[in-house]
Design a protein around this nucleic acid. Structure first.
Length: 439
RNA sequence: CGGGGCGUAGCGCAGCCUGGUAGCGCAUCUGCUUUGGGAGCAGAGGGUCGCAGGUUCAAAUCCUGCCGCCCCGACCA
């Protein structure tokens, strides 16, 4: 992409509405534009990042055996009357009427719709297990939207729903999601901690929130240090096998957010040098809720004994749009965003420092074509701004590499490369520079 | 939903107290000079001062109502 033809409106000053760093950086680097409280338009590079995160989530869900669908944003109120939630949900639900005066709503979540789909096709235990997910915009009319996309009213969420014949099988489904989530966050360059979450009236221990570590995070986490260092299980586990040991390895170590924290237990379960207190952002939540929806909505499964039982369900959410802000909170410096390679809007920026000088243009072009051919999705800065402005902007936007082509270097047959994350620079011949970036 | 704050050019702000020609920086446009970390000079354009009503000879400024946005708290991907 040529920057001169692109749309990447950066701002020198952050709009005063934005208070937290990720929100300021998202506005300044032209990722989003606010249209109303908690409602944002996604501009080109913001959209690219969002799509990349979405794709990571999709790949890991698929790997864990989930199957993608796409449910509508608008849902029928009647389905919610069946589950009993229509009246309970309150003002957070955006209610709409169509021209026939029929009650609709903009979905804040999709349990009702997925149960409606599931029940109309699946009747036998032989068709289980099933895990269906979608990545779709949700709307919750929050009392107080804030923190930019971290707490918007309209947000992109991956929500998965598992269906099983009994609780034992449902636990297996839960375990798959538990481990898949750790892999997702690891691929996004994040350190995530699964913490036990309140299960509400259902009870049991099958609910976890995933909190990514960021100094500016909104909630406090207390965890055994080994849990953080243990990291993700990786993609090459046997997803159909017994995952319980891998999950237990991680759930037996102490981890709690402030509302569930028990200081006395923390001291017993973690030796002093292993006790970690940090700030974080909740970016995922998984739980098992049995027949809470399948029972009232009559999603019945016939078992091997010929008896019908409501499907045992779980649901699993990842805040995709929230992760954009979360990654920035976890990874930035004074100059701007530092994207992990896996989600960066462009892999590398080719910086032409003297647009119009034939020899410089030629080298920049050559570098751009080579990086494009190598699949690095390069951005060619062919604008007529001064060098300082280009560097400042590219640092702000956080493109992982800069390949800098200037008249001095070209005269000597070299270019410069700079790694955004570390600031490390190297001056070397073009071929070597391309190799260093393309790996 | 309780408490607090703010709406003046695309962005950041001053002016309001004490009513009297709407300003500054950045950005934008034109020209010249510049060009390795947000250039310099000269010129230009851009505003129903959130909206409505009121007071007044006169309202960005004072009064009333409404709307929008932000922050703190209780709730959430």
């Amino acid at each position: 992409m040529r920057l001169s033809r692109y749309f990447m409106p950066t701002l020198r000053d952050a709009p005063s509405d934005a208070q937290i760093v990720s929100h300021q950086l998202m506005l300044r680097s032209g990722l989003i534009r606010q249209e109303a409280a908690g409602i944002y338009a996604w501009l080109p590079i913001g959209l690219k990042v969002l799509k990349k995160i979405e794709q990571v989530v999709r790949e890991e869900m698929n790997r864990a055996g989930a199957v993608e669908v796409l449910m509508p944003t608008l849902q029928l109120a009647d389905l919610w009357r069946e589950s009993g939630r229509y009246d309970d949900y309150g003002d957070e639900m955006l209610r709409i009427k169509d021209r026939h005066d029929r009650d609709l709503l903009y979905g804040p979540t999709a349990e009702e719709v997925i149960v409606d789909i599931f029940r109309s096709y699946v009747k036998s235990y032989k068709d289980l297990p099933k895990n269906l997910y979608n990545i779709q915009w949700k709307f919750r009319d929050e009392r107080r939207p804030r923190f930019g996309v971290m707490r918007g009213r309209e947000f992109l969420m991956k929500d998965a729903y598992s269906f099983d014949i009994d609780e034992t099988a449902a636990r297996r489904a839960y375990n798959r999601m538990f481990l898949a989530y750790l892999n997702i966050y690891a691929r996004l360059g994040l350190k995530a901690i699964p913490v036990r979450a309140d299960t509400g009236p259902i009870g049991g221990d099958l609910s976890h929130e995933f909190i990514i570590l960021a100094e500016t995070g909104e909630s406090e986490v207390f965890a055994h240090r080994d849990l953080v260092e243990m990291g993700a299980p990786g993609p090459d586990i046997d997803w159909d096998g017994d995952l319980q040991p891998l999950v237990e390895q991680r759930t037996r170590l102490y981890a709690a957010s402030d509302e569930m924290h028990d200081a006395a237990r923390f001291e017993v379960e973690a030796p002093e040098d292993k006790r970690m207190t940090a700030r974080g952002i909740e970016v995922g939540h998984i739980f098992y809720f049995g027949d809470k929806y399948s029972k009232p909505m009559k999603a019945m499964i016939t078992g091997p004994d010929g008896v019908d039982r409501p499907a045992q369900m779980g649901s699993y959410g990842v805040g995709v749009s929230r992760l954009v802000g979360g990654i920035i909170e976890a990874s930035h410096d004074e100059a701007g965003i530092i994207w992990p390679d896996s989600v960066a809007p462009f892999g590398v920026a080719v910086v032409n420092l003297r647009v119009g000088a034939a020899d410089v243009d030629a080298v920049a072009d050559q570098a751009y074509r080579a990086l494009d051919a190598a699949g690095l999705d390069p951005l060619l800065d062919d604008t007529d701004q001064r060098p300082g402005a280009k560097f400042t902007n590219l640092d702000l936007v956080g493109i992982p590499w800069q390949l800098i082509v200037g008249p001095k270097g070209v005269a000597e047959g070299v270019v410069e490369i700079k790694r955004r994350a570390t600031g490390e620079r190297q001056t070397l011949p073009l071929e070597a520079a391309l190799k260093a970036i393309a790996g």
